[in-house]
């Protein structure tokens, strides 16, 4: 398989993304723990920091979607296996391909809904003027700010289009593996055990 083939690019992009996601997940967990501990200390010393709760919440939101993307590639998730485990090997493989295909379908659909929602073309047409876009299309996304951090909300919402794209790429990489068009890539840096459940 030539390194620059479309398949190769997808698998490599997916591995690269996963490496980023790994670092981001660790970083967000450290950040979250630190934020909550700082909150405890500052509140008990009568200097509560106003924006900490909101930061911690957005930290968890980013953790969710970055982690959800990573777990797609790691093939970790709750799925109902009641029917598939009773199928013959050939049919089971087919079911697997359909299931992985659905990941790609969802990824693409989410890219589309993000496109409708964030309307990058409309924004460019409005000369990147948030108020002009709002006046023309009733889309006020780029004029909003968060309540206590006072950040533009669209910056925080970016996790969704990122998730949509990375999930599509991971889904494609998984699909290529399931179709046996590429060999299974060992995924580095995640020492996860199938036994560690999350209930």
């Amino acid at each position: 398989m030539p390194a620059f083939s479309a398949r190769g690019i997808v698998v490599r992009a997916s591995s690269l993304l996963l490496a980023f996601e790994r670092i981001a997940l660790m970083g967000l967990m450290y950040l979250l723990t630190a934020l909550i501990l700082v909150n405890v200390v500052t509140r008990y010393s009568h200097f509560p920091i106003y924006w900490i709760d909101e930061s911690a919440v957005y930290c968890v939101v980013w953790l969710t979607f970055i982690g959800a993307s990573a777990m797609t590639r790691l093939r970790l998730d709750f799925a109902v296996t009641m029917m598939t485990e009773r199928l013959s090997a050939r049919h089971r493989k087919l079911a697997k391909i359909i299931a992985t295909g659905m990941v790609v379908v969802f990824g693409v659909a989410l890219v589309i809904t993000c496109f409708l929602w964030m309307d990058p073309i409309g924004l460019a047409r409005a000369g990147f003027d948030a108020r002009k876009l709002a006046a023309e299309t009733f889309n006020f996304l780029y004029t909003e700010r968060t309540q206590t951090l006072n950040w533009p909300t669209w910056v925080l919402y970016l996790t969704l289009p990122i998730f949509a794209v990375s999930m599509t790429i991971h889904g494609l990489a998984n699909l290529l593996e399931d179709l046996e068009l590429v060999p299974r890539t060992p995924l580095k840096g995640f020492q996860l055990s199938e036994l560690d459940g999350v209930n």
């Binding site: 509140r43 009568h46 509560p48 106003y50 206590t148």
Partner: peptide, 21 residues
């Protein structure tokens, strides 16, 4: 209630406003 107006008002009274859900 973490609306900016309330934050400014209660801060000006010397309170430490704390947003709690």
């Amino acid at each position: 209630n973490p609306t900016p107006v309330y934050r400014d008002f209660y801060s000006s009274l010397g309170a430490a406003p704390t947003p709690i859900p």
